[in-house]
Design a protein around this nucleic acid. Structure first.
Length: 588
RNA sequence: GCGCCGGUAGCUCAGCUGGAUAGAGCACCAGACUUCGAAUCUGGGGGUCAGGGGUUCAAAUCCUCUCCGGCGCACCA
């Protein structure tokens, strides 16, 4: 049950009833129904009169009075005021919040589930790290963000596919293959000495060399490179991807589809060639020259005729090359074919999650998606900004050159999956993030992960204690919820209790807003606020014993308050699940 | 030089796609444990929303210019 959706309906129908006297038909899209920032203004406010005043040919306040009069007669609306420049403020009958709480408890983990997605397929592509080594911390944020966003969209009613694009076709995987081949010779007993510059030095390739040796014996080493390289490459990529999947599993991140870049051009058909041909057919490709980039001079600039995509016709700054000077496709060309494949597989809505260093790539990719889908497809690119890794306020030094970068696994092993996930989401995706290894394992309010989880554990702790005073309270969670859904909620009259009920009721609205904005961090912040309000109410019971959740000689109010706790626990558990973070029963 | 992302309290950050008097945590000051978990809570001080101009009933939010920080800038992925 979404209270704001309910009132939204009332507002729209009230406006529709008045519309015959308007000068122009009202544009309902701009009407916003939301909780006012200042609670003294009531429970729900709408700007309807202000945005429709022109259409109505009335002054905002005059129109507001008329809408307010119509709303005043609707069920559940206890009071309507016109305020300021023409806000309509509504105070709802407490029965509305009670009904919302009952519905939340009864729905359990489905409370907040939405149908705004209407089953539309959405493709969320995230991580897509090169299969050339283990994942490092830099990959964490994109992985967690993409995963949480996918959860959120699924909860909001979209049909979500989680996808990983394997970059197994470029020069980098050839380097990987040569590095693995060296390890293969090593595995056969050869002294290889130090790893030469330009090859990957990491010892995670040792097992690949051993595997190649075990499978091929000495045979591979006797062949020319063009024969052994594909073999080494395939095996290396395979083993790297297995490693990456394990790393992701440690973070509780899983994908539905792993899409190989190589598969676009291998086998019977060349999807990249086909895509380019189609674009050429549509007039989006030409042979031409590109001006050298301004600013920093490019040393080896080679002015030549090349195959260019007219990205500028779709909003990009310059046209983009599709072929390298050696005649092979650019990465961009493959990427166009890849996104076309997404569209051909039924995804009009696509979301890519990229690191900040790829920000300059957004426009051309969106341009390409428009071109290749004839404007039917929509690509949203979410950029996750840099993560600064700290320990007790001091930067953790990492040098990629020396090979001592911090791996994803190391961080997860040190602070735990929950802490990593929550902290990665407790910040807007496009703002940089400080991740302090010391702070995230602290058990204090300083640490939001703990604070929210503790809120959940504390709620469960109340239930454990309540069973002594209230033997009829079922231990089984589902039975408990069913039992509490029948609680005498009219006993909840304290302002703060009412306020908690309202926040629990706001959950569905939060889910929808976060899903539509593609912003899972809003969920994290909502949970933090809910936990905070719950902790506050819990502590009030210390000064004011009559406000405790468990009142020994009044089982009725105890049941009512337990229902409130049930609502809190339900939303915390549900929200934490969206973030992929555990909701512990206790934290001792 | 161009593009993208940031700039909000001393510090770290929210601000619900334009709403009413801009909010939280930390830090600082003053308080609350014979108690449902004090791993918590209550109160207080603290603001030129980087700066100028514009759009309108209304701007931290949209447009524009400037300043500062990060990232990127044929043929890498």
């Amino acid at each position: 049950m979404n209270v704001f959706e309910l009132i939204n309906g009332h507002v729209r129908s009230a406006v529709a009833d008045l519309a015959s006297s308007f000068k122009a038909p009202p544009v309902l899209d701009r009407i916003v129904v939301e909780p006012p920032r200042d609670p003294t203004h009531g429970d729900v406010a709408t700007n309807a009169a202000m945005v429709l005043a022109k259409d109505a040919g009335m002054k905002p306040r005059e129109l507001a009075e008329k809408i307010a009069a119509a709303l005043g007669t609707r069920a559940g609306i206890a009071r309507v005021d016109v305020a300021g420049p023409g806000f309509i403020n509504m105070t709802l009958d407490a029965s509305v919040w009670r009904a919302a709480l009952v519905s939340a408890i009864a729905a359990g983990r489905d409370h907040g589930r939405s149908r705004i997605g209407a089953g539309a397929p959405v493709n969320v592509e995230y991580v897509s790290a090169n299969p050339t080594g283990p994942m490092h911390v830099g990959h964490c944020r994109g992985a967690v963000f993409g995963d949480a966003l996918a959860n959120l969209l699924a909860f909001a009613g979209y049909r979500v596919t989680r996808e990983y694009y394997i970059n197994d076709a470029g020069a980098q995987v050839d380097v990987l293959a040569r590095s693995a081949f060296l390890r293969y010779r090593e595995a056969l007993g050869e002294a290889i000495g130090p790893i030469p510059d330009g090859l990957y030095p990491g010892d995670y390739l040792v097992p690949v060399g051993k595997a190649l040796a075990a499978e091929h014996g000495a045979a591979l080493g006797e062949k020319p490179e063009r024969e052994w390289l594909p073999v080494a490459r395939t095996r290396a990529v395979e083993m790297m991807m297995a490693m990456i999947r394990e790393d992701l599993a440690a973070l509780n991140v899983r994908h539905d589809v792993f899409f190989s870049e190589r598969s676009l051009t291998e086998g019977g058909s060349d999807a990249v060639a086909a895509t380019i041909a189609a674009l050429r057919e549509a007039g989006h490709i030409y042979e031409g020259r590109l001006p050298p980039p301004k600013g920093a001079p490019v040393e080896d600039w080679e002015d030549r005729e090349q195959t260019l995509f007219r990205a500028t016709e779709f909003g990009d700054d310059v046209d983009r090359p599709l072929m390298k000077s050696d005649g092979s496709y650019t990465y961009f060309a493959s990427d166009i074919a890849y996104h076309k494949s997404k569209f051909d597989r039924g995804f009009r809505d696509m979301i890519d999650v990229w690191g900040a260093d790829h920000g300059g790539y957004i426009k051309r990719m969106q341009a390409a998606v428009r071109a290749v889908t004839a404007g039917q497809g929509d690509l949203d690119v979410k950029i996750v900004q840099l993560v600064k890794l700290l320990r007790g306020g001091e930067p953790v030094k990492m040098s990629k050159r020396a090979g001592d970068f911090v791996t994803l696994r190391e961080v997860v092993d040190e602070v735990g999956r929950d802490a990593v996930r929550f902290m990665m989401l407790f910040r807007k995706n496009d703002a940089t993030l400080d991740f302090d290894l010391a702070k995230v394992i602290e058990q204090s309010r300083d640490n939001p992960v703990f604070y929210v989880q503790y809120g959940h554990a504390r709620g469960e702790s109340v239930f454990r204690n309540a069973r002594e005073a209230l033997p009829s309270l079922p231990a089984d969670p589902a039975a408990r919820a069913a039992f509490l859904a029948g609680a005498p909620l009219e006993r909840l009259v304290d302002e703060a209790e009412l306020s908690l009920m309202k926040r629990i009721s706001a959950w569905p609205r939060q889910v929808e807003a976060a899903a539509q904005a593609h912003e899972p961090h809003r969920i994290a912040f909502f949970l933090y606020d809910l936990a905070s309000e719950f902790h506050a109410q819990w502590t009030r019971g210390k000064d004011l014993p009559h406000l405790r959740f468990i009142i020994l000689d009044d089982p009725q109010i105890t049941v009512a308050r337990l229902a409130l706790v049930q609502g809190v626990v339900t939303v915390l558990a549900s929200g934490l699940a969206l973030l992929g973070v555990g909701a512990p029963e206790e934290m001792r």
